[in-house]
């Protein structure tokens, strides 16, 4: 059974196809409003997440399908000690497709190996969050008209930020990319990410601690939140959380066609005053996420022979 645990599970052709479908959904929403009639998506969220769950549920409703929802480990059978494998087998009896978020890394893979319906990883701890990356790719393609030959800046928590690692991995498959990695020393991109996605493919990158110095070079600026839940130590979190804040003053040094992105939710790393700047794309990113989830649900249900 085909599932999507991480972005590399999808070929470049499939990614392109998903983006084409998403663009078609945007252009002709009425053509898709009954595509999943009679189908059920189970959203199993064992970790707090409002936007990802709502995005999946909105995606399924806009395809004419229904949603079965579990939120919070405390209200589910997981609280009674049920394994992820057993949960996946059980939910497969009720739903046509599963979207799962779980605090433990690798939980989505365990679910996929045991479910008899497709599983979409909606985030497994700090590991992968592929549909966020799908949203990111569509946002870049819609804004820039391409995914190659771009200078991509990533700023903030580049150590624990799974969206950053996924985006680097996904973008490194396209030609002519250059990365600028902007972070405090403590939150630099882990060496294995650089080794596997950048060095192995000879993709040029620079590392800096100074956002203002490099903002004028960027086609894309991907901001991230320094996340409290990724730290073992509260003191480290408090010391680093305000390291990089994007303000209108910094935006003055940026290119007129810069695309500012953020996986959201933000705390204060992008000033609210930047929201009205036409270069701010982070709310479009949210919408694009829903369209890509619609495209992915369609693709997986079709491959599973359920459409």
């Amino acid at each position: 059974m085909r599932s999507v645990i991480d972005v590399p599970d999808l070929s470049l052709e499939e990614l392109s196809g998903l983006m084409d479908t998403a663009e078609d959904i945007i252009a002709h929403p009425g053509d898709y409003s009954e595509r999943c009639h009679g189908k059920k998506l189970a959203t199993l969220f064992f970790e707090p997440s409002t936007r990802t769950r709502l995005s999946f549920e909105a995606a399924m409703y806009e395809l004419g399908g229904n949603v079965l929802s579990v939120t919070g480990a405390g209200t589910s059978s997981a609280a009674k000690g049920e394994s992820v494998a057993d949960t996946a087998k059980t939910v497969s009896c009720y739903a046509d497709i599963i979207a799962m978020r779980h605090p433990k890394e690798g939980a989505a893979l365990v679910a996929a190996r045991n479910a008899s319906v497709p599983v979409i990883n909606a985030g497994d701890g700090g590991h992968c969050h592929p549909t966020q990356t799908l949203a990111d790719l569509l946002t870049i393609r819609r804004k820039k008209g391409k995914l190659d030959h771009l200078t991509v800046g990533l700023c903030g928590d580049l150590k624990f930020g799974r969206t950053v690692h996924s985006l680097i991995s996904a973008m490194s498959r396209y030609e002519g990319l250059r990365f600028v990695l902007i972070s405090p020393e403590e939150l630099k991109v882990p060496s294995y990410v650089k080794d596997e996605s950048l060095k192995r493919k000879n993709i040029p990158y620079t590392q800096t601690t100074d956002l203002e110095q490099v903002i004028g070079d960027l086609d894309i600026l991907y901001m991230t939140r320094v996340q409290r839940e990724r730290f073992f130590n509260e003191e480290d979190y408090l010391r680093l959380k305000d390291s990089y804040i994007l303000t209108p003053e910094k935006m003055r040094k940026a290119r007129p066609d810069l695309c500012v992105m953020h996986p959201l939710p933000r705390v204060n790393e992008i000033s609210v005053a930047v929201d009205d700047d036409p270069r701010a794309c982070y709310f479009k990113q949210v919408l694009n996420g829903k369209y890509m989830r619609m495209a992915l649900i369609l693709m997986l249900l079709k491959e599973a022979g359920r459409l």
Binding site: S83, V84, K104, E105, G106, A107, V110, D124, G126
Partner: peptide, 12 residues
């Protein structure tokens, strides 16, 4: 890795 699923589901 204490965050790995194998840390809490030991039959895996």
């Amino acid at each position: 890795n204490p965050r790995c699923i194998t840390s809490c589901e030991q039959e895996l």
